[in-house]
Write a protein that binds this DNA or RNA. Structure first.
Lengths: 151, 151
DNA sequence: GTATTTATTGCAACTGATTGCAATAAGGAG
DNA sequence: CTCCTTATTGCAATCAGTTGCAATAAATAC
């Protein structure tokens, strides 16, 4: 019936249902190691389940996100990207010039989390964070261009 | 002609033009002390300029953002919010339960910025950051509910 | 003033995503 | 198994935002 028996049981206890549509969305994410856009998920799900409605996909992505099974991130590509939640926690540094995405691990943000907790009593969701900025390469490239322009 | 003579001059030097539409979008933001959604901006602009097309508003918001005059933030209300860029830099802690927005100043994130620079050579845009999580109030409320459920 | 260049606008078509609602079907009870 | 409740689906309408393109008009040169 399902390859996620404990998950399914806990969903049912909470009054939710385990439908083929829901399973297929989760399966599409589980079979991909990387982020997928909603459009990619719909395409993959329809390989097995050709007439699945897109609103069911969007609603299940929101549902799985609420459960904490799925993460939504805006990596600046114009579409939200989804991925299965899996440890270790990581974050992304996204260059606004070359759009390169550098993955960093949670340690870099642990201090900030503690600080927000201590100073404001705020329990931040510092998981899978997207930070925009300028990467090393583009900084040096920009410096060179500025120099050339100055001459 | 305009209440922003230096701005207009520098735009012209860069090959841009200063149109009534562009001015009216900037004016709408300047007259509001707080964040506005695109819809609110369109409504305010149309008080003086009834037939302005929405795509001109969106394009000018993007344009002013590229110039660094305007900031876009997703405060989790389902719409992007815009505001005139003004110091001092600040950030937002947004509770995912009660949706309360707590404004904090830049000091809290300064350490993170230095760390990203030092460890990864990444110059992060740590300006007007939105951090989601659970606020103090909702944490204590959740703790009480859990206790009650345990009985 | 007129002519030229081209950034910007207005419009209409379109995209990704959301929503209201009736129909369906999952899960539990008998 | 059948019956019942209601979470979920499918569909169509809708919404916020984007895009292609021809028309307009801002800025510059003359």
């Amino acid at each position: 019936m399902s390859r996620h028996p404990e998950l399914v049981a806990s969903l049912r206890e909470a009054g939710h249902r385990w439908t083929p549509q829901r399973e297929s969305v989760l399966a599409a994410l589980a079979e991909s190691a990387r982020h997928l856009t909603a459009e990619e998920i719909i395409a993959r799900v329809r390989v097995r389940y050709p007439y699945l409605n897109k609103s069911a996909v969007y609603r299940n992505l929101a549902f799985l996100t609420r459960l904490g099974l799925v993460h939504q991130t805006d990596l600046g590509h114009g579409h939200i990207e989804y991925e299965l939640h899996q440890d270790p926690h990581h974050h992304h540094l996204i260059c606004r010039h070359c759009h390169h995405v550098l993955q960093i691990d949670h340690a870099a943000l642990a201090t900030l989390g503690k600080k927000l907790e201590r100073d404001f009593g705020f329990q931040a969701d510092l998981d899978h964070f997207a930070i925009f900025g300028v990467c090393k390469k583009c900084q040096t490239r920009a410096a060179k261009t500025a120099k050339r322009a100055a001459r």
